[in-house]
Design a protein around this nucleic acid. Structure first.
Lengths: 203, 203
DNA sequence: GTCTATAGGTGGATAGAC
DNA sequence: GTCTATCCACCTATAGAC
């Protein structure tokens, strides 16, 4: 049992708002005033819950990673073959984009040079977790003959992450969320995964 | 003959510094003070050359696109088969990353929600130009039997751009520029292009 | 073209009352 | 836990002298 972070309701609400702002505008382009305004409390009160913006940022990443890992665990339980698992994986990204957000850690990786060290490390851990999960899924899929791709699984995993993060940026730039879908379909096809069959994403 | 933008030497120097700052920190994370400090002139002087930061940003994108298109034209003249052209294309990205920069328009696409309209449109035009060039190269390569890939060329082109932009973000996050190379090699392999053979990038 | 000076606003953060 | 009040640094931008 990993230690559970006990967080007040207000702290959670602060994180919810900050998360959305960071996912849409980036970490440097929102302020305590933005959060305070949305939450109808003062800036000073925010500092009681998160003494500095850097600490808020660290917590933001930690929580995002935890929730992402929960989604991955859900895929491991629910889905059958490796193809279905990968389709479920890209569906996570699609759902984020469809809610008018970008990947938090994709945005933060663009802000990389301006972030405090602890936040940079958190972002890396997020991508490490993604890569590890993908490598495992790819290895299993290939061993079971469900996937066919050349080269080391870790390279395929990194290509998948890079393509999805880049495709999200481009999809928003063009105001066409469907661009993420067509790019991820094209990507999965290279791995021997059949195109998404209007798969309903449960939960 | 397209109209040539006549620009003073100072204006060029301003753009050079602003470009590097935007490529490393993002558009919202540098200021006129940063440029003024690097150039040893005052903030007020900058406003003589570029009245607003938004106008500076527009010019930044326009110039970046022009120089990128010049690089693409150079590829068209110099290289032989489609595989060599695509390797030269990804080499542009690798050179940007190796000079400790990110793609300007990749960074600006992360800043998308905070940019003035004219800058958003400029970013889109940059990616339009990339896509058009890639589509042409892919079509020709496939017609000549030099490339083998499934689906419409435009989808392959978009996957290439997305993967390269995403791979740059990840490479910087990990402090490993080599990650861009391995991802782009993996990407080109899917198109039937042999891996980069320590190709010297001329000019 | 470049400067000084300054306006008018916003940034994160703190002290101390309640 | 939330508030008022305040600090000081920084932001983009302008006026007007040189």
């Amino acid at each position: 049992m990993a230690k559970r972070k006990v967080e007040s309701d207000t702290a959670r609400r602060i994180l919810d708002i900050a998360e959305r702002l960071a996912q849409t505008r980036g970490f440097n382009a929102f302020s305590y005033a933005d959060i305070a305004g949305a939450l109808r409390i003062t800036k000073a009160s925010l500092h009681y819950h998160f003494p500095t913006k850097a600490k808020l940022g660290e917590r933001l990443i930690e929580r995002y990673k935890t929730s992402f890992e929960a989604a991955l665990a859900h895929i491991d339980e629910a889905s059958g073959d490796a193809g279905a698992q990968l389709r479920a994986y890209v569906a996570i990204y699609q759902n984020v984009l469809d809610s008018n957000r970008m990947c938090l850690c994709g945005m933060l990786s663009a802000d990389h040079d301006t972030l405090p060290k602890a936040m940079k490390e958190g972002v890396r851990r997020f991508f490490d977790a993604n890569e590890a999960w993908l490598v495992h899924a790819l290895e299993r899929g290939r061993a079971h003959g469900q996937l066919a791709f050349p080269g080391p699984p870790v390279e395929a995993a990194r290509l998948i992450i890079a393509a999805l993060e880049g495709a999200m940026l481009l999809a928003r730039t063009y105001g066409e969320p469907s661009r993420l879908r067509s790019t991820s379909d094209r990507l999965l096809a290279d791995l021997g995964v059949r195109a998404t069959a209007t798969l309903a994403a449960a939960s």
